[in-house]
């Protein structure tokens, strides 16, 4: 919607040109804020960020810190296909692939999965690129200040932290894994 605000460009009156009255009027405004905030600090809008946080609007528009999803049995859904690393415009993802030796048909898993949050631009391309639905940006954590760069380096352990496993049918490797898992459990 376009709104039009008419600016009154009339010449100043004598009282306004004298300036002192206008200064006094301006000071009335600032002083009102000053004294109100002095005696009633609850009006202050500042949020002392790391200690206080505003509730986040919980919807799909929000992209927060990454996490790696896990399968029902706790193994990471990620198969180290490097699609996120390829899609990442900020070059902040670094994966090292390894092979399952226990007969898991998913074959491949990430031995290392590092995200450098100091480089990340929170664009969500990694989530879009993931063919296995293994990475998500829904932790509600907004990566912000840190005292050292190391604190902003997230490794696989941190990315997999405190999350429940979730059964999923998305992704070919996940499907293979689920079939195998059922077979192993039957035996």
């Amino acid at each position: 919607m376009i709104r039009i605000k008419k600016v009154d460009n009339r010449p100043l009156t004598l009282l306004e040109r004298l300036y002192f009255t206008e200064v006094a009027a301006g000071m009335l405004v600032t002083l009102r804020h000053f004294f109100r905030n002095l005696f009633k600090p609850s009006n202050i809008v500042t949020v002392s960020y790391p200690e206080e946080r505003l509730p986040l609007p919980g919807n799909a528009r929000l992209r927060t810190r990454h996490r790696l999803k896990v399968r029902a049995d706790g193994t990471p859904k990620c198969v180290a296909c490097y699609m996120c690393q390829t899609a990442c415009p900020a070059y902040c993802i670094d994966i090292t692939a390894a092979e399952y030796n226990d007969g898991n048909p998913a074959e491949k898993y990430p031995r290392g999965f590092d995200i450098d949050l100091s480089r990340c631009v929170m664009c969500g391309m990694c989530v879009e690129a993931c063919p296995e639905d293994a990475i998500a940006m829904d932790t509600g954590d907004i990566p912000g200040g840190a005292l050292t760069r190391e604190e902003l380096m997230m490794d696989k352990r941190e990315l997999l932290r405190n999350l429940p496993g979730e059964p999923s049918l998305l992704g070919a490797s996940t499907r293979l894994h689920n079939e195998w898992d059922r077979k192993v459990k039957k035996k």
């Binding site: 002083l31 804020h33 000053f34 905030n37 809008v45 500042t46």
Partner: peptide
């Protein structure tokens, strides 16, 4: 601090 209070902020703390 004064400027912060005048601008509805907290100021250095």
């Amino acid at each position: 601090k004064v400027s912060a209070l005048m601008q509805d902020r907290v100021g250095p703390n």
